[in-house]
Every structure is written in structure tokens, then in C-alpha cells.
Computed example of a mutant assay.
Amino acid sequence: MVGRRGDMAPEQMAEGAEGGVPLPPPRPLDAIDQDILQMLQADGRASIRSVAERVHVSRANAYARINRLVEDGVIRGFGARVNHERAGQGTSAYITLKIVQNSWRTVREQLRQLPGASHIALVGGDFDVLLLVHTPDNRSLRELVLTRLQAIPEVLSTRTLLVFEEEDLEPQG
């Protein structure tokens, strides 16, 4: 196997979760990679220098490892953890959807366009899709469910679970 993505045969590449960008086959992560991931999950703004010092490698090694984790699709991006209530999105809900069989890709693309959609998952069980949304208020949530979601032809039914309180779990470190 060749180390550069462009030199891999199509059968060696997996489709990326973000919509068709081919990814190389996953490589095993060692303890240093795991430590880097844990550190960046706790603080995505950590400098290369602080990462290198914490995991006891050179800055060049830390930089190369982080780049490899990004290129391999292990790290999908860097972002801010948002307090949705303080950001004007005080109403949160999990919405379960039953959809037409084999319509996941079509429905997923339409759900991505919804304002406030935060997480979409295809699941097994009594329903097909689990959607997390954040909206400014209950009126906006009602509009999203009754007008936007139920207008998608492949959506057979929905159930809305209002979130009373939520907490993002911080990585242990």
C-alpha cells in the first residue's frame, strides 16, 4: 500500500462521512495518538508546542501526527462547544423519524439544510432517524417539525422529545 491518498486504488479507499471524500483505510492509533486526540478534544485551540510537551514528542512529530489524524479522517475538524441557550437557541429537542425504506441519503441531505439541525443519525429500532435540533423557542420548534420536517415526502412520521436540560460531556483528561 502506498502512503499517499492519490496513489491508492479505489478499493483501498473508504467513503468519508462528510459526503464522498475518499479516505484511506484506517491506521491503528498508538498511545501518543490517543493522548493527542484526548488533549485536542479538551482544548481544540491547544498549540502544537503544548501538545508536543504534553505527549513528550518533538513539535515536528506532534505536527505530523495531527496532520495525519486530519488526513486520515480521524479528526474531522476543530470547533467551539456552544452553550445553545446563551447563543439564543434555548429550545432543544430530539426528533425521531420514520422514513420510507431506502430513502436515508435523500432524507439526510434535506435534514442537513434544516436551521438548527445539530446531529443526524441513522439508527436501528422503533424509528429510523434521530435528529437533534436547537431553536430559539417553542414556536420555532413547532414550525420546524410541522412545516419543514413533515413536508419531506419520505418522512412517514415524527415524534418530538423536548430537552429540559443538557450537558456536553467533557473528555476525561
Rank of each mutant, 00 (worst) to 15 (best):
L97E: 03
G16M: 05
G19L: 03
R4E: 14
H56F: 05
L23A: 06
G6I: 11
R45P: 05
S118M: 15
H84G: 09
Q12N: 09
E15F: 09
P26I: 13
V155T: 05
N83E: 09
K98V: 03
Q101W: 00
I48T: 11
V129D: 01
R112H: 15
S47P: 06
I48F: 08
T135Q: 07
Q113T: 12
L122C: 04
P28K: 12
P153S: 06
D137G: 08
R159E: 13
R59Y: 04
Q34W: 12
S157N: 11
E143V: 08
P28I: 02
G19R: 02
P26L: 11
W104E: 14
E166T: 04
L29C: 05
S58H: 10
R59I: 14
E71A: 15
T106C: 02
I48E: 05
R45L: 11
R148Q: 13
I32Q: 04
R5W: 11
R54A: 15
V51A: 08
P28E: 07
P153E: 07
G125R: 08
S103P: 05
R112W: 11
D137T: 10
G88H: 12
A14K: 12
E170A: 01
A14H: 12
S157H: 07
N138R: 09
V70H: 01
G79H: 13
G19P: 07
R54P: 04
R142E: 15
V2M: 07
R159W: 03
I66R: 00
D126N: 11
L146C: 02
R4G: 09
E15M: 13
D168Q: 08
R76L: 15
P24Q: 08
L122Q: 15
R105A: 14
L23R: 12
T135W: 02
N67M: 14
F164E: 10
A93T: 02
E85D: 13
F78T: 10
R65L: 04
V82I: 15
P171G: 04
I66F: 07
E18M: 08
M39D: 03
N138Q: 06
G6C: 03
E165K: 15
G20C: 09
R5A: 10
P26W: 10
G125E: 06
D43W: 03
L162T: 11
G79Y: 13
D168C: 03
A60G: 15
V129A: 05
E143Y: 05
P25F: 06
A46E: 00
E109V: 01
G3T: 07
G20I: 07
N138A: 11
L169D: 02
Q34A: 13
Y94G: 00
L161Y: 11
R45V: 08
R112G: 05
A151G: 04
V123G: 08
I66S: 07
W104A: 11
L23N: 02
I75Y: 12
L97T: 06
S58A: 10
R86K: 14
Q34I: 12
R27K: 13
I75N: 06
A60Y: 00
Q172M: 08
F127Y: 14
R148W: 00
S118D: 14
V21A: 14
V74I: 14
I66M: 04
P26Q: 06
N83S: 03
Q101N: 01
R108G: 03
N67D: 10
L29P: 00
G19F: 08
R68W: 09
R65G: 02
L29E: 09
I36T: 07
S50G: 00
V133W: 02
E15V: 11
M13W: 01
